[in-house]
Design a protein around this nucleic acid. Structure first.
Length: 500
RNA sequence: GGGCCGUUAACUCAGUAGGUAGAGUAUCUGCCUUUUAAGCAGAGAGUCGCAGGUUCGAAUCCUGCACGGCCCA
């Protein structure tokens, strides 16, 4: 269906009427999309500064305010009208009176609709009910709105419409706006947290010839001029570590990753990730840094280290619980070493729990599935799970005492993975072996297995200082700090199938 | 991929043991100079998601499809 047909189809009488009204304005010489009005004041500061003043004090103030915003509610009484206008900062009531504006202006104003953007000039006063209000001496149309807004009391509830037309959601649901303001504050907090500690923010490729740094299916694209296949990145990790080789000792990047996988309340194909790398540090130092980051973030954003999430209260006060991967299988998963160390028994158990086991899958991977099924959902309060099997950690440094496990941890809160960190593997011999293992798995049919990256090996051969590195899912963090049940509530435009 | 649920006016929602499609908000008209989910009186507004089927008759029952939500994988 063409755009034109489509736009014709979703016309309705209300839109028709507004279009006709707009034509009437034009005929009267009233521009419907002028760009001449210059507002001087934001609404929120006006409310904050003058809310407490008395009637008399406001009268003595003798100040004219020039504000602009969208008409949100209109209560008309014939010769007077009350309405609210909403700008980016807040909402204030405006009082329009025929005697003050004059008949001509008042009659034009009376034709304005809820949703129109208007500019208002006038002094402040307080109504009988004590609401701080602007007494309009002038009102002009700044932008005509052609579509009716959702119902004023219930707002826009239809989840699908809210995501497809987020602009409407943002106009009518103040809580949605708050989430995205918080999201911005969270990201800004993280940046200054890292900047203060000497980290350098960098940007590395989103389009990569070899996708690396995570086990995930990539999106594939093609560059015409170079006639080459490119992948949207699944992680920035290998590029950031090349920068450690290059001599930057503390780097971070906050940006989008893309994974060609399913969509759920916790997964969007593109999502935002923080990754940071710290030379001359290891995973234990990162645990402390993570505790510090999360707890100070909660305090700054939510005002407390104890925050509500769903039916739980999450306590982010450090220090957090720490359990090794195998300890967690035993203590939280209630498994015995005999159950999770025996390949056949572990495999049978995974199948019994309803998860598939791919032929030839290694024990580490099966243990990870047991963890996902039996442990992860129970980790409501913050838990560091550390010492993951080497088989499932191809970029992590081996533990000095036991080469079958790595100096790696993941952080879980509210039953979800929030961070993944490790002492980085900087031994090019070992890294090559690990890549070769991955390539074998890829050849055996595991689409998520890592690619061999010869240039990355070459970089390690120049020498990468020992380092700790960590990735934190920003969307999930925002979900946690805004008490949002779905990742779509914290992504402005989540991916949806297009309609018709 | 599987299961369950949803889709009715611009928005929020009712609805029928199968029998002419409803309310509130919004819109339009009229009255109204301190309202704030303003009020009062009146009017207009719907391919009941789409396509088939059963039936004298389907928004309602059946099948398929689309989109979405939740849960599982």
């Amino acid at each position: 269906m063409s755009t034109q047909q489509k736009s014709h189809q979703d016309e309705n009488k209300l839109i028709q009427a507004r279009k006709e009204k707009a034509q009437q304005f034009l005929k009267q010489g009233i521009p419907i999309y002028p760009n001449k009005f210059r507002k001087k004041h934001d609404i929120k500061p006006i409310l904050e500064q003058y809310q407490t003043l008395s009637h008399e004090e406001l009268e003595e103030l003798d100040r004219v305010f020039i504000v602009a915003g969208r008409i949100m509610a209109l209560r008309s009484f014939g010769k007077i009208t009350f309405f609210h206008i909403q700008d980016h900062s807040g909402k204030i009531q405006v009082f329009a009176q025929k005697n003050i504006l004059g008949t001509e202006k008042y009659n034009i104003f009376k034709k304005f609709d809820v949703g129109d953007i208007v500019g208002v000039k006038g002094p402040l006063f307080k109504t009988k009910t004590g609401e701080l209000t602007i007494k309009a001496e002038d009102i002009e149309l700044v932008t005509k709105s052609l579509r009716p807004l959702p119902e004023k009391y219930h707002g826009l509830k239809d989840v699908e419409l809210r995501y497809r037309q987020r602009y409407v959601d943002l106009i009518v649901n103040p809580k949605v706006k708050e989430i995205f303001i918080k999201r911005s504050k969270i990201v800004r907090f993280i940046r200054s947290f890292l900047d203060e500690r000497g980290f350098l923010e960098v940007e590395t490729p989103m389009m990569q010839p070899i996708p690396g740094g995570a086990t995930a299916r990539p999106f594939i694209t093609h560059h015409n001029a170079l006639d080459m296949q490119l992948y949207l990145r699944i992680a920035p990790e290998l590029y950031l570590k090349r920068l450690l080789v290059g001599g930057f000792e503390r780097v971070y990047e906050i940006n989008r990753n893309f994974r060609n996988e399913g969509i759920s309340t916790q997964h969007n194909p593109e999502f935002t990730m923080l990754e940071f790398y710290m030379a001359y540090a290891d995973f234990t130092i990162l645990m402390e840094l993570t505790e510090e980051l999360f707890s100070s973030l909660a305090k700054a954003i939510c005002g407390s280290m104890k925050i509500p999430y769903g039916e739980h209260e999450i306590d982010l006060t450090p220090p957090w619980e720490k359990l090794s991967f195998y300890e967690s299988l035993e203590k939280i998963g209630n498994l015995s070493p005999a159950e999770y160390q025996d390949y056949e028994k572990a495999k049978a158990l995974v199948k019994k729990l309803g998860e598939k086991v791919v032929e030839g899958e290694k024990l580490g991977k099966i243990q990870a599935k047991l963890f996902d099924l039996l442990v992860e959902p129970k980790l409501i309060q913050p838990h560091f799970i550390y010492h993951y099997p080497t088989e499932i950690s191809p970029l992590s440094r081996r533990n000095e005492e036991n080469p079958d496990i790595t100096d790696r941890f993941e952080l879980f809160i509210s039953g979800r993975e929030m961070a993944n960190a490790f002492s980085e593997l900087n031994d090019p011999f070992d890294q090559r072996q690990r890549f070769l293992e991955q390539v074998k798995e890829k050849e055996a049919g595991d689409e998520e297995a890592h690619f061999m990256d010869e240039d990355y090996i070459r970089a390690l051969e120049y020498g990468m200082p020992p380092a700790g590195g960590e990735g934190i899912g920003i969307d999930r963090l925002v979900m946690l700090l805004t008490n949002s049940p779905s990742i779509r509530e914290v992504i402005l435009f989540p991916l949806l199938r297009p309609t018709g």
